[in-house]
Design a binder for these strands. Structure first.
Length: 258
DNA sequence: ATGTCGGACACGGTCCGA
């Protein structure tokens, strides 16, 4: 079973690229972020025509998350992260697909830091950590996939010294992510590629993709039940070189049958 | 500080967020 995550940076602007990638790589489950579309303008029919059922949580202009399934329709478990009823951002949706609990997340960027946006990011990470603990306690197979907007270590950024004050790399951010992982999650890409340079995002600015000036910020965290089933992982980095593409590349993992 | 996208508002160009 292949599970992918892809920050599309507007699903309607990205539809030709998304459909081409789906048809070429046929993932079983896909987590999407940054839909940038209101609920009613999600391209449900185009995805159905390509063979994918979807659930999604849209929002005008910003954010937005979706889960696609090549087989049965995802069975929605929750939308929105618990812990703050005043949080209006569409950044979390969770479903059961093929007996696996899938959490699809778009963590706040948090820049500029320090400031209220950075505070929101750290609060959101705390809420995610609380919810993740409950998911682990459920002892079910869980994937938490998405754009974390976290550069976990110096290994995950082309020039660490330039990112020290950035919300994606500040010590508070890295420590919060480490606290989450230390609950018992597996960083799937890093497990498969322990020493390699792996990037999932290249800025639109300054020919970042051409210079391979990238970041690793899209992650899969696996519960112990799924850690045992992890057989492969990768980044479809060539998609980042296509015309009219996102600034993120799709990332995927392959899981063996239960 | 810079650079480049995408969306909103509203139809040309500027602003915001990333």
């Amino acid at each position: 079973m292949k599970v992918a995550t892809y920050n599309v940076n507007s699903i309607n602007s990205r539809l030709p690229v998304l459909l081409r990638w789906l048809i070429e790589t046929t993932p079983d489950v896909v987590c999407l972020q940054e839909l940038k579309t209101p609920q009613e303008k999600f391209p449900e029919q185009a995805l159905l025509d390509a063979g994918y059922h979807a659930i999604w949580h849209g929002q005008k202009s910003w954010n937005g998350v979706a889960i696609l399934s090549h087989h049965d329709k995802p069975e929605e478990v929750r939308r929105g992260l618990p812990g703050d009823p005043d949080d209006t951002h569409s950044r979390y949706i969770e479903a059961m697909v093929n007996g696996i609990h899938i959490g699809c997340l778009y963590l706040p960027n948090g820049n500029p830091a320090p400031g209220p946006k950075f505070d929101y990011k750290l609060r959101w990470l705390e809420r995610l950590t609380s919810h993740a603990a409950e998911l682990l306690a459920s002892r079910t197979p869980v994937v938490l996939a998405g754009d974390y907007n976290v550069i976990p270590t110096e290994q995950d950024v082309y020039k660490p010294e330039r990112w020290l004050d950035d919300a994606l790399f500040r010590p508070e951010t890295r420590e919060a992510f480490q606290t989450l992982v230390a609950q018992g999650w597996t960083d799937a890409l890093r497990k498969i590629y322990p020493i390699e340079t792996i990037y999932t995002f290249w800025d639109y600015f300054r020919n970042a993709y051409g210079r391979n000036a990238g970041l690793r910020i899209d992650h899969f965290l696996l519960s112990p039940e799924l850690d045992r089933r992890l057989v492969a992982a990768g980044v479809d980095r060539d998609v980042r070189g296509w015309q009219k593409t996102s600034d993120h590349a799709p990332v995927w993992i392959e899981l063996s049958d239960g």
